[in-house]
Design a protein around this nucleic acid. Structure first.
Length: 401
DNA sequence: GGCTGACCCTTC
DNA sequence: AAGGGTCAGC
C-alpha cells in the first residue's frame, strides 16, 4: 500500500482473517450497503468495493485490500475539526475491532475445524475469512424476527425500510463511484420507535406481512418491561437495549429463555441472536438448509429430498452433532459451511441426495462432482449419550393484557 | 409432547 | 408450490 484514498486510514489485516465481501452479505447483518468501485487496472491489491454501515452517530466506510482494512468515518454536520475527526476515527477503530471480533484468530480456528472434520477441510481454502460478527442484540433481534420463512434479499429490503421509516436521517454521502448521486443513511431505530401504537399496521403496508405484529409486540414488550421510552434526543441507548446487552453475561440457556419470550422468536431465531450478538460461539442455528447439510454430509437421519419435519428433538440432535464435530466455536464453523453451501446452491441449483432426479433448472451431475462440499460423509452413527435437554418452561403470554 | 395448517410475500 | 419459522390448536 503506497497511497490511501482520501480520508481513509489503514488497519493491517490479512484477508484470511476477514473477507468483507463474504461476511457482510451472507445473511448475518442486513444493513450494510455495498458499492462497486471503478477499477482502472487489474491490480488485485486495489479494492473493488466500498461497504458502508450506519451507526447511531456516524457512518463507517470500509474498503479492503489483501493486507489491510481501509476505514473512514463520516459524521453529521457540522464538520468537525481535524482533531475531533481524529478522535472519532479512533473510536471507529475500536468499534471495528469489537464488531469484527479481531482478537479472535480465525486462521487458528480454521485449522482446528479442518483437523476435526474433513468436510470442512475440503472447503476451507475456498471460503476463507468468514467470521462471526458481534452485532447489536436489539438490531439482531428485530432483523431475525423478519427472517422467518424469508430470504436474504427480502429481509434486507425490510430492514432498510424499517430504518428509513422509523429513524431520522443521520447524514448523506455521495456514492463512491463518482456518479455524484447522494445516498442518505438512517441508523437502526430504537425500541421506543417501534413500540408506538400504529407501527404494526404501517409495517404491514410496507410488506412485512405477519411479522409486522411480531415486531411491534416485541418492541412494546421490551419498552414496557424496562421503563423504556427515550427521553433524550439520541446519542444514548435505551434501557431495554442495555438490558439486551446484559444477556451476554447470561448462560446460553438462560439467555435463550429470555429471548423465547418475545413474539416471533422461536428456537431458530433465538439461536441466531445468541450466536450473532450475544457471544454464544457454540450455538448452531438449525434451519432446513443446515439440516440438509447435516443429512448429506454428517450422517444425520432424515430424507435428503423429502422434507423432514423439524421437531425440537431433531433440532437438538443436529445441534449436538455439530458441536461434537466442531467444538466450542461450532457456530462460527457453521457459518462457513452455510456460506459455502449458499454459493454452491447459487451455482449448481438444488442439492440432491440420491437417485430421484430432482427436476430443477437443468444442470446437475457434472458440476456437482466438483461441488463445494465433496468429502464423504464423516458419518459414524450419532453416538451421543449425554443429552441433558434442559427444558425450560417458556413463559410466554397466551393473551395480551 | 408431537404434528398440522395458516400466515405475508417473492420467486423458481 | 415452497421457502433460511412461529404460533395456535388438536
Amino acid at each position: 500500500m503506497t497511497s490511501l484514498p482520501p480520508g481513509f486510514y489503514a488497519l493491517p489485516l490479512p484477508i484470511l482473517q476477514l473477507s468483507l465481501a463474504a461476511v457482510l452479505k451472507c445473511g448475518q447483518s442486513f444493513r450494510w450497503s455495498a458499492y462497486p468501485l471503478q477499477v482502472k487496472s487489474e491490480d488485485p491489491s486495489m479494492p473493488t468495493h466500498e461497504y458502508r454501515f450506519c451507526l447511531r452517530d456516524r457512518v463507517v466506510c470500509l474498503r479492503q485490500t489483501p493486507t489491510d482494512i481501509l476505514y473512514r468515518t463520516a459524521l453529521p454536520e457540522p464538520q468537525p475539526s481535524a482533531t475531533q475527526q481524529k478522535l472519532h476515527e479512533a473510536e471507529t477503530l475500536l468499534w471495528l475491532k469489537d464488531y469484527f471480533q479481531l482478537a479472535i484468530d480465525l486462521k487458528l480456528l480454521y485449522n482446528d475445524w479442518g483437523s476435526r472434520d474433513k468436510v470442512f477441510l475440503s472447503i476451507k481454502e475456498r471460503f476463507s475469512g468468514i467470521r462471526m460478527l458481534r452485532q447489536d442484540p436489539w438490531e439482531t433481534l428485530i432483523s431475525f424476527i423478519c427472517s422467518s420463512n424469508n430470504n436474504i434479499s427480502r429481509i434486507t429490503k425490510m430492514v432498510q425500510n424499517l430504518s428509513k421509516e422509523y429513524s431520522p436521517p443521520l447524514l448523506s454521502l455521495p456514492v463512491p463511484d463518482g456518479s455524484g448521486i447522494e445516498e442518505t443513511y438512517h441508523p437502526f431505530p430504537p425500541p421506543s420507535a417501534l413500540a408506538k401504537p400504529d407501527v404494526s399496521s404501517r409495517l404491514r403496508s410496507l410488506g412485512f406481512g405477519y411479522r409486522a405484529e411480531f415486531i411491534h409486540q416485541t418492541a412494546k414488550m421490551l419498552v414496557d418491561s424496562h421503563h423504556g421510552g427515550k427521553t433524550h434526543p439520541q446519542e444514548s441507548s435505551e434501557p431495554s437495549e442495555l438490558w439486551l446487552l446484559t444477556l451476554r453475561g447470561y448462560t446460553t440457556e438462560n439467555a435463550r429463555t429470555e429471548l423465547l419470550t418475545f413474539r416471533g422468536v422461536g428456537r431458530k431465531v433465538s439461536d441466531c441472536i445468541l450466536l450473532m450478538s450475544l457471544d454464544k460461539t457454540d450455538v448452531v442455528p438449525v434451519d432446513t438448509h443446515v439440516h440438509q447439510i447435516a443429512i448429506k454430509h454428517y450422517g444425520m437421519k432424515g430424507s435428503a429430498k423429502g422434507k423432514t419435519n423439524m421437531t425440537p428433538k431433531l433440532y437438538e440432535e443436529v445441534c449436538t452433532k455439530f458441536v461434537q464435530v466442531w467444538g466450542q466455536y461450532a457456530g462460527w464453523a457453521h457459518s462457513v459451511l452455510f456460506t459455502s453451501d449458499l454459493k454452491s446452491f447459487a451455482l449448481h441449483g438444488l442439492p440432491e441426495a440420491s437417485d430421484p432426479p430432482t427436476i430443477q433448472k437443468g444442470r446437475n451431475k457434472r458440476e456437482r462432482d466438483q461441488d463445494e462440499i465433496t468429502a464423504t460423509t464423516n458419518a459414524e452413527g450419532s453416538a451421543s449419550p449425554a443429552e441433558r435437554v434442559k427444558k425450560r418452561a417458556r413463559k410466554r403470554r397466551t393473551s395480551p393484557e
